[in-house]
Design a protein around this nucleic acid. Sequence first.
DNA 1: CGAGGCATAATTGTCAACAATCTAATCTTA
DNA 2: TAAGATTAGATTGTTGACAATTATGCCTCG
Lengths: 225, 225
Amino acid sequence: MKQSGRTTLTPGIVEQLSLDIAEGHIEPGQKLSEAMLAKRFGTSRGPIREGLRRLEERGLVSFHPNIGARVATYSVKDYIHLFQAREAMEGMTAKLAAESMSLDDKTILRTVFHEHEKQLMNQPDSPYDQDPGDWDFHYLIAKRCGNPILSSLLCDELYQRIRLCRKQHCNTPGRGVRALKEHRRILEAIEENDGELAELMMRRHIAAARKVLESFLLANPTTIK
Amino acid sequence: MKQSGRTTLTPGIVEQLSLDIAEGHIEPGQKLSEAMLAKRFGTSRGPIREGLRRLEERGLVSFHPNIGARVATYSVKDYIHLFQAREAMEGMTAKLAAESMSLDDKTILRTVFHEHEKQLMNQPDSPYDQDPGDWDFHYLIAKRCGNPILSSLLCDELYQRIRLCRKQHCNTPGRGVRALKEHRRILEAIEENDGELAELMMRRHIAAARKVLESFLLANPTTIK
DNA sequence: CGAGGCATAATTGTCAACAATCTAATCTTA
DNA sequence: TAAGATTAGATTGTTGACAATTATGCCTCG
C-alpha cells in the first residue's frame, strides 16, 4: 500500500489493533506475527512494527527480543494497581467535570446514566465485562473533563489495559444496582458543580469496585481464561 | 550496527533520546531528522523510527506526516493540566508510600529530604528548573510507592513532559523554603504510616505549586524560550 | 525590491531483501 | 523409549533502495 495524500499507515494500524485487543478479538498473550499482520493490513512489516512499538508503550503489547510481540498479560496484582491509578485519576476527572464541564455535556451524561439504568432494569446481573452502560458513564466523564492529558491517559491507556485484564481474569463480578446508585450520586454532584463531592463519590465508587475485585481474585487465585 | 546477542537497538535509542530531551540537550520544538539520528546512533533509520514512535506515545515527540518528528511543545494550558494530573497521581503515591513503603526506602527518603534541606541552605533562591532536591523527593516516592503502574506513568511519562515544559516556559519561579516545609510534613506523614494525611499534604503541595504557576504564566503570557 | 512560480535537493514513508536468531521436526544414541 | 543433538524452516532485526512529498534556492516578473 503506497502513501496516499497526507495520511500515513501507522496511526490506522494502531487504532485498529488497539480496538481488536481491547474488545477481545485477540486474546491476551496471543502471538502477534508481523508477517500475518502485514498481510492483514496489506502493508509491509515496517509500519506494522512502528504501530506495535506504540502499543508497547501503551501497555497493550509486549516485545521480546528475537521472539516477537504478544498481546500483553497482566497479573492479579497489576489489575489491582490499575484500579488504584484509576481511583486517583478518575477522582480528579470527576472534580474537573463538576467544576467546568459544559451544560451540553452534562445533559449527555445524564442521558448516558439513564441508558445505564434502563439496561440494568432489563438484565440486572450482567457480568462486569458486559456492562457497557457503566463503562460509557466513566468514559464520558474522562473524555470531557476538560483536561486532555488526563483524558488521554485514561481513555487511551488505562481503560484499554483494564479491559484486557477483564478478558484475562474473566468472570469478574459486576456490582449492578449498587454501582448505579453510586453513579447517581456522582452525576448529581457534577450537575450541582460540587467538585469536592464528585471526587469523593467517584473515589469511593472505584475503591468499592477494587475491593470486590480484591476479595474475588484472592479467593479464586487463577481464573485465567 | 548489526544485532548483538539478545539485545535490540530500539530500547537504547529510546532511553538515550528520552534523556536528551528531558535534560534539555535537545530544545523543545527542534526538528528530529531521522538521517541525523541514524548517523549519531550508527544505525539505519528503521530502529530510529521505532524509537520515535515510542517517544511519540510518551508525549515527548510529535509526528507530522511527510514533515517528520519534532520534540514536543506544550502550551501553558497543557502545563497546568500536567500539574492537575500530577496532583491526583502523586497524592495516591504518597498515600501508598505511607501505607506500604519499606523501612529502608523511608530511610532513604529522609536522606533525600535532608539533602534538599542542605542544598536550599546554600542557595535559597534557586530557580525551579535547577532544583534537583525537590525533584528527587517526588521521584523517590513515585518510584517506590509499590504500584509499578503509577511509577511508570509518573516517572516515564509525566515527569519528562513537565521537564520539557520547564525548559520551554523558562524562569518558572521555585517555592524554595515553603516547598521544603511541605516536604517535611509529607515525609512525617509517610514515616507515621498515615496514608490519608500524606495524600492530603502531597495534594496541597502540588496544588500550591500549580497556583503559583498559573498566576505567573498568566501574568507573563509567552515566556517561551 | 519583493512576490510568486519553477526546478532541484533533501527528507519522509514504504517496501523488499539479507543476516541473525529462534522453533520444530528429525535423527541419533544410550 | 526417552533424552539430546542436528538440521531445516520460519520469524525477527536491520539495512539499503525507491517513490511520494516537502523544503530550498533561483529565476522571472511586476
